[in-house]
Design a protein around this nucleic acid. Structure first.
Length: 258
DNA sequence: ATGACGCATCGAATGCGA
């Protein structure tokens, strides 16, 4: 089975891309971030017609918003981080039946954080601590667990087009990377790095300054899997195709095969 | 060079992303 994460940067603006991409890549589950719309505006009918009748949606006007679209039923849907009060719609979790057993899926749009030393960065760090504690509980409750989404963290130097020039800037700071490692230390691994990957693999490119044509990107969209799930992972890859389409999202979809 | 590009918003200039 295949599960994909994709920050679409407005589902209203990107609906046709989502329909075109899923038609060409009929994955079982698509986790979306940055819907930028309220629940009542979520295009349920179009996605049902595209083969995704089961959608768990946690929208928000203008900013944030996450959803899980699935071919098979979703249950035990939880919105946001249990135990962390948040004004933003950033996390949605659900359970689905996999080929060999139940999978727990946590889909997050992590805080951007703007720059170290700003209130937004402080929010990012406290949000990450809240997520860590929440994931610790999720891991105790579920053997097969995936944490997917737009992490807004480039975990290592090789995940950035300019690790020296961007050292200790947003997405690259020691604090953010330490929080990423703390998630791994709970008993998860970065599925992308379980496999041989092309050099300079990124999942996001700035719209400005010819970011994509110059491959000036960052790998900030990730799929972490729990330790028991690790032997089941057959592959993980980034699809740059839709980044080349007209009016693309600045993020590319990342897909795991189980 | 805090600007570029793109999206959203009670309709234009601004906030935000990363």
């Amino acid at each position: 089975m295949k599960i994909t994460t994709w920050n679409v940067n407005s589902l209203t603006a990107r609906l046709q891309h989502v329909l075109d991409w899923t038609a060409a890549n009929p994955v079982d589950v698509l986790c979306l971030q940055e819907l930028k719309l309220t629940d009542d505006k979520f295009p349920l009918d179009a996605l049902r017609a595209a083969g995704y009748p089961h959608c768990a949606v946690f929208g928000q006007k203008t900013y944030n918003g996450v959803a899980i679209m699935s071919r098979e039923p979703l249950r035990d849907i939880v919105k946001n981080i249990d135990g962390y009060a948040d004004e933003h719609s950033r996390v949605i979790a659900a359970t689905l039946a996999g080929p060999l057993g139940d999978l727990r899926l946590v889909n997050g749009y992590f805080v951007n954080g703007q720059a170290p030393g700003t209130p937004k960065f402080d929010y990012k760090m406290s949000w990450l601590r809240g997520l860590h504690d929440y994931m610790q509980g999720e891991l105790s409750r579920h053997d097969w667990l995936l944490l997917v989404g737009d992490f807004n963290i480039a975990p290592e130097d090789r995940d950035s087009f300019d690790p020296e020039g961007l050292r200790e800037t947003i997405h690259h700071t020691t604090e953010e990377r330490a929080q990423f490692r703390r998630l791994l230390e709970l008993g998860m691994c970065d599925s992308f790095r379980l496999f041989e990957q092309p050099e300079k693999s990124y999942s996001w490119w700035d719209y400005r300054m010819l970011g994509y044509p110059k491959n000036r990107g960052l790998r900030i969209d990730h799929i972490l899997v729990s330790e028991p799930l690790k032997p089941q992972v057959k592959g993980c890859s980034i699809d740059r195709t839709p980044r080349k389409w007209e009016k693309p999202s600045d993020h590319a979809p990342v897909t795991i095969e189980l």
